[in-house]
Design a protein around this nucleic acid. Sequence first.
DNA 1: TTCATAGTCCCATTATATGGGACTAACTTT
DNA 2: AAAGTTAGTCCCATATAATGGGACTATGAA
Lengths: 263, 263
Amino acid sequence: MKHNPKPPPSGNASLEKGLALLNLIARDRGQTPLKELAAGLALPRSTLYRLINTLEGAGMITKLEHRRYDIGLPLAKALHGITPAGQLARLCRPALRQLAAACGATAHLGVMENDMVTYLVKESAPSVPAALSISVENTQLEAYCSGIGKVLLAWLPEAERARYLAGGPFVALTARTITGPQQLRETLETVRAEQFARDDGEIAEDLYCLAVPLLNGDQSVCAAISLTFTHAGQIKHDDATYLARLRACAARLSLGGLANIQR
Amino acid sequence: MKHNPKPPPSGNASLEKGLALLNLIARDRGQTPLKELAAGLALPRSTLYRLINTLEGAGMITKLEHRRYDIGLPLAKALHGITPAGQLARLCRPALRQLAAACGATAHLGVMENDMVTYLVKESAPSVPAALSISVENTQLEAYCSGIGKVLLAWLPEAERARYLAGGPFVALTARTITGPQQLRETLETVRAEQFARDDGEIAEDLYCLAVPLLNGDQSVCAAISLTFTHAGQIKHDDATYLARLRACAARLSLGGLANIQR
DNA sequence: TTCATAGTCCCATTATATGGGACTAACTTT
DNA sequence: AAAGTTAGTCCCATATAATGGGACTATGAA
């Protein structure tokens, strides 16, 4: 036995190997014979099959014909109804509620879904009187005119962003809405440079909003969170204060487990 | 260290423990503090936390506030789109295709969904000319008049079956359809006694069908599979032959991994 | 403040995973 | 049909790597 390289300072080795295997099977879904796995993990045959059998015994995977393996029915049942979006909302909601309360505003979390922003979480401080009417959980809004939308666009891969910008038209919702593709492109560059987005009355006259990204381990964007204020006296501090809180919240959430399962 | 009881003859101990933990967390979804887990698994604190940390490191779970744990976002992403019904269909389809080919008929797999049968798989032998028009994958049919429906009803818990039988009315689709609740009850008792169901022209005049259950480890019914023939010369053997093949197929599938994840 | 419980860290002990290799099963190829 | 190849199982001596007791810190409640 030699485990000479041992680069990852870990805790439980055999559990880790088993989970890595499970992970591979989950993304392969029985397409590739067991060789791919053995190749990637560099496990001796004995060990590999022992892990496979343990996983199968626990109902995590099922042996298909032709040396293929797929996720087992018991696991599918155990995780029934769990979706990435739903889980993201579940995991982030408490932090957003605290953020909203601490800032006396409304906090949102949104993700990009086919060129629109889907709002997954909306939490308002108790002090916020009427709920904002523009956003509703699990509904979509245009991306180009909101703080969250601009953040998500700014961190999109270059090609994606170019495609979006070419897609217009960008309809003006207020006098301040950015409607020119070129102007929008420049705005997004600023967003990425400054690491946050601002929406000052672009989506509705009386709304002011600051947004920052939630990044995966590989720096790709997972979601964006924002603080929204009405101009009617909700704003008690300057941008820097609110941004610090937003970023603290984002950091806390990113630590939580957004890093890709790939490690 | 003492592992004196050691009732389960197993292979990989620490992997098994980790998966058991994951399983518990999956069904609890962060409702109960970590105590429930420690209680059920009888693990020393040291070991428990080591497992928790390894699971979290692999993205399987996420630490919530207040000593709660939930499924991690990476796992949710990895298993996105996997549903129990979809997985059941994936895992069983090849076997049903072989069964259909071997018998020169059409094989179905169905499950019960709010008092109707949902057909998840439909595979016909190449020799079967026109596809049967009554059944389409992922659509529902009444339970009381099909072979699969009768099997699923027969293995339902007594209370459920009674509720179903009280629910009527049972509309006649052919002259042979069973429409009386009492008669249907007796038929279902026979089905359970004989371990299979027959539908001879009850759903459509020219269809003949035999069905058997796919049982979970605890003898509850998971799904049912059937062979369907038209009376126009498809039937080459007697019931016993076809039933043997159906049961062989069911046994093979049940082995595959229907046993509940609970072990 | 104190108390209780959650969670981390350390380390000697040994139980437990490891992997080489022999073996059988299943599928291909001729 | 026989020979060859690869998948998967089984065994067992070895020592790696999981174990768990216990001290310690963090957190949060009283």
